[in-house]
Simulated scan of single mutants.
Amino acid sequence: MGEAHAPSDATEPALAAEAAEVAAFREELGLDGLIDIHTHFMPQRVLAKVWAYFDAAGPMIGREWPITYRLPEPRRVDILRSFGVRAFTSLLYPHRPDMARWLNDWAAEFAARTPDCLHSATFYAEPSAEDDVRRALEQGARVFKCHLQVGRFDPLDPQLDAAWGLLAEAGVPVVTHCGSGPVPGAHTGPAPVERLLARHPRLALVVAHLGAPEYEEFLDLAERHPHVTLDTTMAFTPFTEEWGPFPRRALPRLEQLGDRVLLGTDFPNIPYRYVDALYALRDTGLGEDWLRAVCHHNAARLLGS
């Protein structure tokens, strides 16, 4: 898998120009930095397979999806820092059993050598799930990732019940890809999540991608469950609006939930520039107070950063 295949807009002059654009965006809001709850760093062999899947427009992707920031790991970290991202995640997700623990060990090591990375962890529906989550919490994990589309498991799988209980008790947020975009999965959509929250009402669940494309159903869910937040990953960008447009009638509801919306981007696996995601949020017209809360304040409060 070639790091030499970086697209033209990831050249050094373009990255410097983009950093200046992000700085101007932050300055307009009076923010010294951003907190991005949804970024990905992985062992290189895992990331290479993820990129290959995107390159092939695999069944869970469903369309052409170029990777903008296909660069070596140290450069990707430097790019986020140059954008003023003061805290970010290394969200990982297993697609089969016997992966979660070694992914978590890698993430713990990555966080130890990358102080601005929020120590991230994951789990899978398997007999070791409770032990894996407990071990990651003891290692200091501050955010977890649960990918129901890729993992293809029911969040109500009995093997996960104790793990969810540990996470609810700890109050550690779990970024969960549970919406049915870009391609529905066997256990995506709001119904399984509603059942999960009925069982674990104190779970600090972060609905990735604003729940796309079931935006309004996940807004319903967030309005009923005070510990649920939503992240903005890829929302409102032209790329996402082509297949899953956010209903403009729901913007006032998103504004009302402004203290429970978090910046997420999917960096580096996005088919456009990082700053374009920020512009897309600004173009919602929800205002500077909303943007400040989304881009920094809400995540700082949730994570104690």
Rank of each mutant, 00 (worst) to 15 (best):
L15N: 06
A16C: 13
A16K: 13
A16R: 14
A17F: 12
E18R: 07
A19L: 07
A20F: 06
V22Y: 00
V22H: 01
V22I: 12
V22P: 00
A23N: 11
A23E: 13
A24R: 14
F25L: 10
F25I: 05
F25C: 06
R26L: 04
E27A: 14
E28C: 09
G30D: 02
G30H: 04
G33L: 08
L34R: 00
L34N: 01
L34C: 05
I35F: 08
I35R: 01
H38E: 06
T39M: 05
T39V: 06
T39I: 09
M42P: 00
M42A: 12
P43N: 11
Q44C: 07
R45Q: 15
R45K: 15
V46E: 10
V46I: 14
L47I: 07
L47K: 05
A48W: 08
A48R: 03
K49Q: 12
K49D: 11
V50P: 00
W51D: 09
W51C: 10
A52R: 08
F54S: 05
D55P: 07
D55W: 06
D55Y: 05
A56Q: 15
A56I: 08
A57I: 11
G58C: 14
G58D: 15
G58Q: 15
G58S: 15
P59I: 11
P59M: 11
I61Q: 06
G62H: 10
R63P: 01
E64H: 07
E64I: 09
E64T: 09
W65R: 06
P66L: 08
I67T: 11
I67P: 00
I67K: 02
Y69H: 11
Y69V: 04
R70K: 09
L71Q: 03
L71S: 04
L71M: 09
P72Y: 07
E73Y: 05
R75N: 02
I79L: 14
I79W: 03
F83N: 04
F83E: 03
V85E: 01
V85P: 00
R86L: 11
R86F: 09
A87K: 02
A87M: 06
F88M: 10
F88C: 09
F88A: 05
T89V: 09
T89E: 02
T89S: 13
S90H: 06
L91C: 13
Y93S: 08
P94C: 04
H95V: 08
H95K: 12
P97E: 13
P97K: 08
M99T: 09
A100Q: 01
A100K: 00
A100M: 10
A100V: 05
R101F: 08
R101N: 12
W102D: 14
W102A: 12
W102R: 14
D105L: 13
W106Y: 15
W106Q: 07
A107Y: 00
A108L: 10
A108K: 10
E109S: 15
A111I: 03
A112L: 12
R113P: 08
R113M: 12
T114H: 11
P115F: 10
P115M: 10
P115C: 10
P115V: 10
L118C: 12
H119T: 11
S120M: 10
S120P: 02
A121Y: 01
A121S: 13
T122P: 00
Y124H: 09
Y124G: 01
A125D: 02
E126S: 08
P127E: 12
P127F: 09
S128T: 15
